[in-house]
């Protein structure tokens, strides 16, 4: 069970209001994207959920429990892979679990095999490509004990080809495991391709401008990106973001 419920969340930094009464709900096993331009306070939402910041108003509930300002409630994958250079891949992916007890190395090995990193279990991050490092970072978040996963623009630093590969890969793993995911991105296609639901954020102060249900069948393949429905949806979101 992991249901995230955010109610009228407001955050000010000094005189500037970054979030204004944000409401957000992620159901069990749902993949929800927060889509917004850079600097729209997407990362602030994560810092609030992660407990690094205290909201000025509003409450964050995870499985019905108030987690305002409480760290360690969610599993997190940052924008940069943030692997420790002196740890091997296996040691890196168990780090999240290690913080809360004894990690399960066997499970980690299996997961790495499935992530296509079987040959790199004992390699150091420096020996891996950018895409592989991001995979390792995602495996780390899957292996963390918290079942709710927050992904913060995980593919924004990758090149176009690697990014599409990674999106497909992420989707395949997610469709098997079905954790609840909150995904932050500024890439419209990525949001449509991956999500069940997209929340389009406005500029500061950030609020949900539009909520879009993505109803394409799962498991999804890359071909869905070329359908008319997909392109129409992309256009609709684009216009919303432009304020038309």
């Amino acid at each position: 069970m992991s249901v995230l419920d955010i109610q009228s969340l407001t955050k000010d930094f000094g005189p500037q209001t970054v979030l204004q009464g944000l409401n957000l709900h992620v159901a069990e096993g749902e993949f929800v994207s927060l889509l917004g331009p850079s600097g729209s306070g997407k990362s602030t939402v994560f810092h609030l959920i992660g407990g690094l910041l205290q909201p000025n108003h509003g409450t964050i509930y995870l499985d019905g429990e108030n987690i305002n300002g409480q760290t360690g409630s969610i599993s997190y994958m940052p924008q940069s892979p943030s692997l420790f250079p002196w740890r091997t891949i296996i040691e890196n992916v168990i780090l999240g679990a290690e913080l809360f007890g004894k990690p399960d190395k066997e499970k980690a090995k299996q997961m790495l095999q499935r992530a296509g990193l079987g040959d790199y279990i004992d390699a150091y991050p420096a020996e891996l490509s950018g895409g592989m490092r991001q995979r390792a970072a995602f495996v780390r978040s899957l292996l963390s004990p918290q079942s709710f996963i927050c992904l913060d623009e995980p593919f924004s630093a990758l090149d176009e080809f690697t990014r599409v590969d990674m999106q497909k890969w992420l989707l395949s793993i997610w469709e098997e495991e079905r954790p609840s995911v909150l995904f932050v991105t500024h890439n419209i296609e990525e949001a449509i391709f991956l999500s069940d639901r997209i929340l389009v954020l406005s500029e500061k102060p950030a609020n949900v401008m539009e909520e879009i249900n993505v109803t394409f069948d799962r498991p999804r393949s890359e071909d869905v990106m070329l359908t008319n429905d997909f392109i129409a949806m992309k256009k609709q979101i684009y216009q919303t973001l432009r304020g038309e």
């Binding site: 810092h47 407990g51 690094l52 360690g72 969610i74 599993s75 997190y76 913080l99 918290q146």
Partner: peptide, 19 residues
Amino acid sequence: DLIHYMKMAGAQKRQIFTK
């Protein structure tokens, strides 16, 4: 970035130091 990850992952101050 690494410190940020550790904090988000729920690491204690002591863990951030030792690990």
